[in-house]
Every structure is written in C-alpha cells, then in structure tokens.
C-alpha cells in the first residue's frame, strides 16, 4: 500500500500548444489510475503553473466561442472539484501584472471546496523536491 506523488509543472501558454491542457488532463486522470494498481496503491497528482504557464489560470476564457473547444479554465475547475492541489507562481503573476481577481481561484459554482494557491516559487520548489516524479509540460 503506497502513494506515488507526481508534480506536473505547466510552463506553456494556453492555446498556443496543447501542452498545458494535456498537463491538466493527465493530472486529472490520476483519479482513475487505481484500475491499473494493486488495492490501496495510489498516484497523487499536483499541478503548478509557472512562467508563461500562469496565463492558463486567467478566468473568463472564451475558447468555445473562438476555437469551438472546451476552455483550459474548465479543466482547472475540474481539478479543483477533484480536490487536486493547484499552485500558481506569485512572482510570475507579478511579472505579467496579473492580479488575483483576474484568476480562476475556485470551483465554487460546481461544488468545489478546494482553492487554487498563489505561492512564491520557493514553495513550488519545495513541492518539486517532495514528489517522486516531475513532469514538465
């Protein structure tokens, strides 16, 4: 009976490539990983947005209107609904002049209880050091 911890580090801009969306969908898939594992074993995923990746966390994304696809904001909401830890780099937000009220911080409207966390890079570094595997996207 063991838990393996993964950290997805999303550095890519939203919609320019598929990488940040795949980071979120892969992290969310940790919810159904037990079907491949022994009873009691788990894979726990966390996601951190750094660098250009913090742009993925902007709210009021209009992906359906412009591209006809689901928004990355929707995947972020799902990850919060599933109680996944979502970290956003404070320094990188400051570099872009992005304030907290411009970000998707919770999934209250769909019943989520967990909130995204704006944290200094040092906290993300600590998380990197604490997990079993790092996955940069």
């Amino acid at each position: 009976m063991a838990t393996k911890k993964l950290l997805f580090v999303a550095r890519s801009l939203p919609y320019k490539t598929e990488a940040s969306r795949l980071a979120l969908t892969h992290a969310i898939s940790s919810q159904s990983v037990e079907i491949y594992l022994k009873d009691g074993d788990l894979v726990e995923a966390t996601i951190a947005f750094v660098g250009d990746g913090v742009m993925n966390c902007l709210k009021n994304q209009q992906a359906m209107k412009h591209y006809g696809i689901t928004s990355i904001e929707g995947h972020m909401k799902n990850s919060l609904l599933l109680d996944m830890k979502v970290m956003i780099c404070k320094e990188d937000l400051a570099k872009f002049g992005i304030k907290e009220d411009a970000l998707l911080m919770d999934a209250d409207d769909i019943g989520g209880e967990v909130k995204a966390q704006i944290v200094p890079y040092s906290e993300i570094q600590k998380e990197m050091e604490s997990v079993d595997h790092l996955l940069f996207c």
Partner: peptide, 13 residues
C-alpha cells in the same frame, strides 16, 4: 489506452 495508464506506469518506474 487512456491517460491513467501512463500515470499507473509511473507508479513502479
């Protein structure tokens, strides 16, 4: 397979 196959593979990697 679906994405959870990959995460399961990391378990014993």
């Amino acid at each position: 397979f679906s994405m959870d196959w990959y995460l399961a593979s990391t378990f014993e990697a």
